[in-house]
Amino acid sequence: MAERTFRVWRGDKTGGKFAEYKVDVGKGWVVLDVIHRIQATQASDLACRWNCKAGKCGSCSMEINGKPRLSCLTRMNSFKEDEVVTIQPLKTFPIMKDLVTDVSWNYTQNKRIAPFKPGPRPKDGQYRMYQRDVERSQEFRKCIECYLCQNVCHVLRDQDKKDKFVGPRFMIRLASLEMHPLDTEDRIEKVMNEYGSGLCNITKCCTDVCPEHIHITDNAIIPLKERVVDRFFDPIAIILHKIFGKKKS
């Protein structure tokens, strides 16, 4: 056990302050363990959202020493022994209490996206897909909706364009639907005009913070941007689209 110092944000949407706590940190602890110890011994009213403590539920997202991370996956031995650890709520979303933010805006965005719409079933009634055809969509299904990517995206975080851009999490949802071999819905026009693909400037912070290591920018956002180019900016692709008609076979 070694005593370590923590600065934890305490407050709500009206304001607040950093409170300093000293905690004896045990071997193998993660930041979420520290928060639980503070709750148990020093501040029983400290609010923190968590669930699985295994990096799979996406609940314990926060900013630790300025970096958006899951507190259950942030090991204490990743910091220097004399380093003060600062723990804050996510910046992009309104603070409810202490480390808990209101992420309901994300659910609203999800509802705006046209759901999966498969074509008619084959004569035998069975849809068939090959693994290589669904692999791209499957990568995006790893998303645990921790919203770290939404939090770090400067379009939402600093430029406050929540009314114009759905954010990286929903760009991967759009990509997973658009690339699905059985889906027949066409969302490309909305990707540009309503979901705001043009606002993303590919700075890749969403990819950097993803705890599931999803290649958000390279495998979802850029391919969607290229599909937008096909539809609206590439004269050759536009002509081919006009001639060959529908997007999906």
Binding site: G66, L199, C200, N201
Partner: peptide, 25 residues
């Protein structure tokens, strides 16, 4: 965009404030 336009300079570092950010639109 990071080095010369500071939008953002690095991840979770506040970007250069813009009146009406337009991105690549």
């Amino acid at each position: 965009y990071r080095s010369f336009f500071a939008t953002p300079p690095a991840c979770a570092v506040t970007a250069l404030p813009q009146k009406d950010y337009k991105g690549e639109t």
